[in-house]
Design a protein around this nucleic acid. Structure first.
Length: 492
RNA sequence: GGUCCCAUCGUCUAGGGGUUUAGGACACCGCCCUUUCACGGCGGCGGCAGGGGUUCGAAUCCCCUUGGGACUACCA
């Protein structure tokens, strides 16, 4: 058997922002394409006019790009087997649905929504298997003509064989068997002329020459329907691979908005880096087979294989993502990290928009002080506040006094430090350390007893970067003012 | 309810009949480094859902139970 070209697709529905689970599906598809020198297509399944969300398309394309998952064919870039919006392929679906009707493999159904609802209600109560009762399957040509003449708009339903068995082969899970009698005559073409997912999906995957369908496992149960459609059209089905769903962090129930961030956009806004998110997602359902954990997209392409995909549901626990993000943050060049932090700092009003070059250079110089101390870009604001603002609010007195000190001792320490620092011409780390250690020695105090009050006086916090680099970065004028402010607090 | 999928530390996972006292990572705890915080280093805690088979031998194969999940629309 000759090897066919690998063509895969990510086919989201524009009903909302790109979901984190969808992003993983897109990632695996993208990897499968790149790994095999194939193509990754983006196809928009906009066949439900009632759920269409106008902003969704932009979010989906922007999020995929943000993650680094560019598509070879699809919206914005075009391609040879377009259009890539299902709403622009309506004639094709209609033609093929009618073809099935003519061949006796599908039929018109004029049942009203009301009748179907009642039917379903009765089936639920009677504990019967739900599904269409095939009422219109035996309509005569005359009856059909009459219904059309009366202006009724039918749906087209697939004529499912009433018995038999169908095999579904999933490249991951192996063979699954479904009894055809449990499958109902599902709708192919809706009364508004739009196709259902089942029809459009099969037709597009065929004409777009998709070789592997990788999708969420909520589609497993529909796959026998799809295979029946392929058979009816006389087409060869693609390789199916169903990916496990994401569960809530507690492992109970499917991930939903109740559990916090569900869209890629949410993660971006929370200060996660795309490379960290991708790395995290990569390992949620796939394993390289060795102990490596860090992967660039390029390395992932190299290592990826479908065989190492997992089948069991995955609880989306964010702790490891935070760790990944911290690791990636630390790997960035300070200037690059400054660029990434800038929008968050501007949003918090800590830097102006646009940011003047000298302010930006100051930011770059601060990055090494916080790079090891933050895990999210949103943490940069709080960590940099006392550098970027001229004044800080006066620290509480009890924060200024370390556990083993008295207010009097602290005042003494701060006054001595203040006096010594006034004499320092050049605020550099080495000189500052020498000076302040000298102060502690002269007072007969431990270094920490002197350092901690200064730290709090200057930053308002007990957890900060190293004292000397911090003082150097804030500068003599502000440091002296803040120490004086703290002394006032203690003398009250 | 019916059909289908899944089942190793709290979480992500390695393992595919003997190489396993079940390995790694995150989280958690302790120690070290140290002016605080963090980073880093070292160590610790912690798991094969239960029951039956098959086999000389099972986390690994089979069955049942239990648990979780998906689907059950003129939604995808």
């Amino acid at each position: 058997m000759k090897k066919e070209k690998v063509r895969v697709r990510f086919a989201p529905s524009p009903t909302g922002f790109l979901h984190i689970g969808g992003a993983r599906t897109a990632l695996y598809n993208w990897l499968q394409a790149k790994k095999n020198g194939g193509s990754f297509l983006l196809r928009i399944e906009d066949t439900d006019r009632t759920r269409f969300v106008p902003e969704a398309l932009d979010d989906i394309t922007a999020s995929l790009k943000w993650l680094g998952l560019e598509w070879d064919e699809g919206p914005l870039v075009g391609g040879p087997v377009g259009p890539y919006f299902q709403s622009e392929r309506l004639e094709l679906y209609k033609k093929l649905a009618q073809q099935l009707v003519e061949e006796g493999k599908a039929y018109y159904c004029f049942c009203t929504t009301e009748r179907l609802q009642e039917l379903r209600k009765a089936q639920e109560q009677g504990k019967a298997a739900p599904g269409y009762d095939r009422c219109c399957r035996t309509l005569t040509p005359d009856q059909i003509r009459e219904a059309f003449a009366a202006g009724k708009m039918p749906v087209i339903r697939f004529k499912m064989p009433e018995q038999g068995e169908i095999k579904v082969v999933d490249a991951l899970r192996g063979e699954m068997r479904f009894d055809l009698s449990t499958l109902d005559d599902f709708v192919l073409l809706k009364s508004d002329g739009y196709p259902t997912y089942h029809l459009a999906n099969v037709i597009d995957d065929h004409f777009m020459e998709i070789s592997h369908v990788m999708r969420g496992d909520e589609w497993i149960v529909s796959t026998p329907k799809h295979i029946m459609l392929y058979q009816s059209f006389g087409w060869k089905p693609p390789v199916f691979i169903h990916l496990p769903v994401f569960l809530a962090p507690d492992g109970k129930g499917k991930l939903s908005k109740r559990h916090g961030a569900t869209s890629v956009r949410d993660y971006k806004d929370k200060g996660y880096l795309p490379e960290a998110l991708v790395n995290f997602l990569l390992l949620l359902g796939w394993h390289p087979g060795d102990d490596r954990e860090f992967f660039t997209l390029e390395e992932a392409v190299e290592a990826f294989s479908i065989e190492r995909l997992n089948t069991s549901p995955v609880a989306l626990s964010l702790e490891k993502l935070d760790w990944f993000n911290g690791m990636y943050l630390r790997k960035l060049d300070p200037r690059e990290l400054a660029i990434r932090c800038l929008p968050f700092l501007q949003k918090e009003g800590l830097l102006p928009t646009p940011c003047p070059p000298e302010r930006f250079e100051y930011l770059v110089s601060l990055i090494p002080l916080i790079q090891e101390r933050i895990n999210l870009l949103t943490e940069a604001g709080p960590a940099l506040q006392y550098f970027l603002e001229d004044e800080i609010s006066p620290p509480a007195a009890d924060l200024l006094v370390p556990k083993k000190s008295t207010p009097e001792e602290v005042v003494t320490a701060l006054q001595s430090a203040l006096a010594a620092l006034k004499e320092v011409e050049e605020f550099t780390e080495g000189i500052l350390e020498e000076t302040l250690r000298g102060v502690a020695t002269a007072l007969g105090m431990k270094a920490g007893q002197v350092f901690m009050p200064i730290r709090v006086a200057v930053t308002g916090s007990t957890a900060t970067p190293g004292l000397f680099e911090l003082l150097a970065a804030i500068g003599k004028e502000r440091v002296l003012a803040r120490i004086e402010q703290a002394i006032k607090v203690l003398k009250k």
